[in-house]
């Protein structure tokens, strides 16, 4: 789940039009870019898709951190392909956001100056090779929980982007699990890396779903509009239920002494993450917030001359063509 705490916008429009709009959504008719939509729907979607796109882009950094140090050529190739896919996801999502009337440059600048957010998870460091596996297994695993239902979201371009993205994400998750499995089955040092990665990434992964439903005030409108398909707590529970047996299979211990199967509920009981830490990370105080944003700003600033150069050349070429005609 790469969109957290996306604030729903209130909307004040003609009740008749709003009624028609809601009826379309209730009938599962997709909303397309040229259709009428409430301002609140448009703004909320821009925020949500933008946050998702930015997460893909910033999310390249913790994984790219290991490309040059990948331990085998095959692992290096897999990781390169994965990070490339993520940049591709960012591209689809920026295109989806553009259909709502915000350009990629505008939305990028909002990321760079801190007006828009990206998922809190990417503010945690990747410290060992096992972290690359853990990111695939847990972070992509958590993302898929949210993205699979979003394939049915009401906004057409977003839904179609999600369908493409989900195919690749589930592949990434399997590859991540395979990488950490190899370490869990490896030497004592590799096992230690795998357990340490799980220890560090477990709670931040749970935080990816956002605060508990009782504290999440913006869900109702987004759920009615079908741009949020499940509550945060539903998805978090689903993630825990899916992940616990996978950890057991690896022989790794989830760092939660309260974790226990609850026969009556048919779900695992588990400890909440430290929400104070979550809000700190959201505010910019995570271990890597400053560095991640600095890296994106540096790439953007250093690349200005490249973008300007290519644009100037394209203009010259167009002018040349016109002159020749």
């Amino acid at each position: 789940m790469y969109a957290q705490m996306v604030q729903s916008e209130a909307t004040e429009e003609d009740p008749a039009k709003l009624g028609e709009f809601q009826a379309k959504i209730d009938a599962d008719i997709k909303i397309e870019p040229k259709d009428w939509m409430p301002q609140g729907y448009r703004k909320t979607l821009i925020r949500q898709i933008g946050q998702h796109a930015h997460s893909e882009i910033v999310g390249q950094l913790p994984e790219a951190n290991w490309i040059t140090r990948a331990p085998t050529l095959e692992r290096k190739a897999i990781l390169l392909a994965k990070v490339q896919d993520e940049a591709g996801h960012g591209l689809y999502l920026y295109c989806a956001a553009e259909t709502l009337g915000v350009s990629r440059d505008e939305i990028t600048e909002m990321l760079l100056d801190g007006r828009m957010k990206y998922s809190s998870i990417f503010n945690y460091p990747t410290l060992t090779w096992a972290d690359v596996g853990a990111v695939g297994w847990l972070v992509d695993g958590a993302a898929i929980m949210n993205q699979v239902p979003l394939q049915r979201t009401s906004y057409g371009p977003y839904s179609r982007a999600m369908i493409r993205i989900c195919k690749e994400e589930s592949f990434h998750q399997r590859q991540g699990y395979d990488a950490i499995r190899k370490m869990a089955e490896g030497t004592a040092e590799q096992r230690r890396m795998a357990q340490d990665a799980l220890n560090r990434f477990w709670y931040p992964s749970l935080m990816m779903f956002g605060p508990s439903d009782k504290d999440s005030v913006h869900s109702a409108q987004s759920m009615a509009w079908k741009i949020k398909m499940n509550t945060n707590d539903e998805l978090r529970q689903k993630f825990v239920d899916q992940t616990v047996p996978q950890a057991e299979y690896l022989g790794l211990t989830i760092p939660d002494p309260q974790l226990k199967w609850n026969e009556d509920r048919g779900h695992y009981d588990f400890s909440e993450p430290d929400w104070a830490e979550f809000f700190d990370v959201i505010k910019g105080n995570g271990p890597c917030n400053v560095d991640r944003l600095a890296a994106r700003n540096k790439a953007w600033d250093d690349g200005q001359w490249v973008r300007d150069g290519l644009l100037a050349h394209a203009k010259k070429k167009r002018a040349g063509k016109v002159a020749a005609e």
Partner: peptide, 16 residues
């Protein structure tokens, strides 16, 4: 080494 740091998203993808 460019991964995640290229001047424009399309270049990031192409370099990777």
């Amino acid at each position: 080494e460019w991964c995640g740091h290229a001047p424009v998203l399309e270049e990031d993808i192409a370099l990777a």
